[in-house]
Every structure is written in C-alpha cells, then in structure tokens.
C-alpha cells in the first residue's frame, strides 16, 4: 500500500504569497553566503543537505485529499482542492480518453472536503466510473454535491457531468471489501458527523481519521477509538489545534490537537502518526516547529516503543 497526499490543509486552501516566498529566498541566500557552486548538482546537494524543510519546500496549501495506491482502480479519501491536481495527474498519465474507475471515501461533506470535485476533470469525461462512499445517507451526500454544482455557486451543473457517478452509504463498524482492500468506518465527533476509515491490505493497516474532535471525556468512546487505531501502520490524524486552543476557545469546533494524537497513537501501539488537516493560519515555520515539539512530547511521554511522527505535506508519499 502506498499513500499519496494531494491536499493536507484544513478548512480552506492557502497559498504562499510574495512576501512569504521572499522570506524563504532570503533565508536560503543567507545560508549560501560565501559559497560557490560549480554545478547544478552542487546546488541541489546544498539545498538537500543544508536548507531546512520549511525554507526549501513547505507543506503546501491544498485541502484534504489523499490517494491510496495498491488496488486495480484509483482510490482516494476526500475531495478537497488537492483533487484538482490529482485529476490533472491522471489525465497527464493516461490521456483523457482512457476510462477508469475511481473510489472515493468521504470523511464528511464539509466544503473543504468536496470543493475539489467541480475541478476534477475525469468527472466530465463519459466512460469514467466514480463511486462515492460515505457514512452519511445517499440523500445527504448527493445533496451536498448537487448544491455545490448549482446556481449561483458554480456554472457547470451536476447533471452536466459526463462520468457515471454512484453513491453508496457504508455501514459503520463492519468490514467492506472494495477494490481489493478491506475497509471499516467509525463515526467521529464533528459538526454533522464525520467518519474515520481503517483500510487494510496484505497485512498493512492505514487509518484516515480527519475532522474529529477527540475530547477523550468518555472512557467507552476512547476505548472505541483505540480499538479502531490498534496496531495501525499509519494513522492520518486531525491535529489542527494546540491542546490549549482545542479545549478553550476552539472547543466544539470539531478538531483535535497534536498531543492528543500522540497519546492515542502510543496507547493504540500505532507505528507512524501523521499530522493532517493543518490550521490555515499556520505558516511553514509554524508547522515545522509544531512537528519538533510533537516529537519532543512523544519522547517525554513514551513508555515503550517509539512512535514515528510526521507532518503531512502536499505530494508527500508514504509506503506501507
């Protein structure tokens, strides 16, 4: 199984503006002061070895969309703005006239998780088959997509899409066999409800758990989350807020914190904890600092095996 992140930002897409880019260039130039580069390779080596991640790359700004590779068909979770780039990638790879099957697993239907669909080119091409699965009812799902592509929100209406589109509600807490994977859903605390997915194949397990406020104030519910995460190879987790924000001014906003994720993943003996659904107000330096701090917290509270911790960025790839 391989995971590709097409969008990792929470709530709304963001883009680096000129001032942000200028700051990055300045930092890089200061680091290179006095150096001479004999070749492009030397420049690349300098960037790879001497410049930190937030200066040379950054986390990107597309909203939630991840791809799970390892089945016959295309398979993704959520349709945030990152889906636009995924669609372009597919068209570039196969050309427009090569029908494919797509399986989408929806955490929920908030705008930041569906806004990529009107810009998903394969949806306009007859012959493509698109399955949209979720824990919400078919009516609720259809309604969200229809309203997004109707007047006055968007010029191309839902009924004008060329692809063959099917909606399916999946039952919670039971296994479903789709595209060669086994998949289970679990309801999460979020406005209007959201669903986490446990996706397994060939002895590997991924949990995609975004837009979830884990208050951990109910032992039974916490035990359910731990069971859902248990021994997963990778947990992609809504770590949008600091703990202080999560339980004060942003209480009931529907999101979790970086250190709640560490505590849950340590208790569930997860191998790799990946922070996701980044706060749009955070810049690359903020997210990088939070990653260092989260790793430090894990180091302090860990009692057994270490937990690998990363922060998802657009175009990141993880092999399981």
């Amino acid at each position: 199984m391989q995971i590709r992140f097409w969008g990792t930002r929470g709530s709304i897409p963001v883009a680096a503006n000129g001032r942000v880019i200028r700051e990055k260039i300045k930092r890089a130039l200061l680091l290179a002061e006095g150096l001479r580069f004999g070749s492009q390779e030397q420049v690349d080596r300098f960037i790879d070895e001497s410049i930190e991640f937030p200066t040379k790359c950054g986390y990107g700004g597309d909203s939630s969309c991840i791809q799970i590779l390892g089945g016959d068909d295309y398979m993704l979770c959520d349709m945030g703005s990152g889906l636009r780039r995924f669609g372009q990638h597919v068209i570039t790879e196969h050309g427009p006239q090569n029908p494919k099957v797509y399986h989408f697993f929806m955490s929920h239907l908030h705008w930041d998780h569906i806004m990529g669909f009107p810009f998903f080119q394969p949806a306009y091409i007859p012959g493509n088959i698109i399955h949209i699965y979720g824990g919400h009812t078919v009516e609720v799902m259809k309604d969200a997509f229809r309203r997004q592509q109707s007047s006055p929100c968007f010029p191309v209406y839902w009924d004008q899409l060329g692809a063959d589109i099917h909606f399916t509600q999946l039952k919670e807490n039971q296994w479903h066999e789709i595209n060669g994977f086994r998949i289970k859903l679990r309801g999460q605390e979020h406005h209007g409800g959201s669903f986490g997915y446990r996706i397994e194949k060939s002895g590997k397990a991924l949990v995609y758990s975004t837009d979830a406020e884990h208050k951990l104030d109910n032992d039974k519910n916490t035990a359910g989350i731990l069971d859902f995460y248990r021994n997963a190879d990778l947990v992609i987790f809504d770590a949008m807020y600091s703990l202080a924000d999560m339980i004060t001014i942003k209480e009931d906003w529907g999101h979790s914190s970086n250190i709640i994720g560490v505590d849950l993943c340590l208790r569930a003996r997860v191998k790799h904890y990946c922070m996701f659904h980044h706060e749009p107000a955070y810049n690359d330096e903020d997210l990088f600092k939070i990653l260092q701090e989260t790793r430090r917290y894990e180091e302090i509270v860990r009692e057994a095996l270490p937990l690998e911790i990363s922060t998802a960025y657009d175009d990141m790839v993880i092999d399981l």
């Binding site: 600091s242 703990l243 202080a244 924000d245 004060t248 914190s257 250190i259 701090e293 989260t294 430090r296 917290y297 302090i300 509270v301």
Partner: peptide, 15 residues
C-alpha cells in the same frame, strides 16, 4: 522543567 516543557508544547503556558 519537563512539565514546563509539556505546558509550552500544549500552549497551556498561554492560558
């Protein structure tokens, strides 16, 4: 010191 660090990481030092 270690608890102070946890307060800083969680931003409890701000609230």
């Amino acid at each position: 010191p270690i608890i102070q660090e946890i307060f800083t990481i969680s931003r409890f030092d701000l609230v």
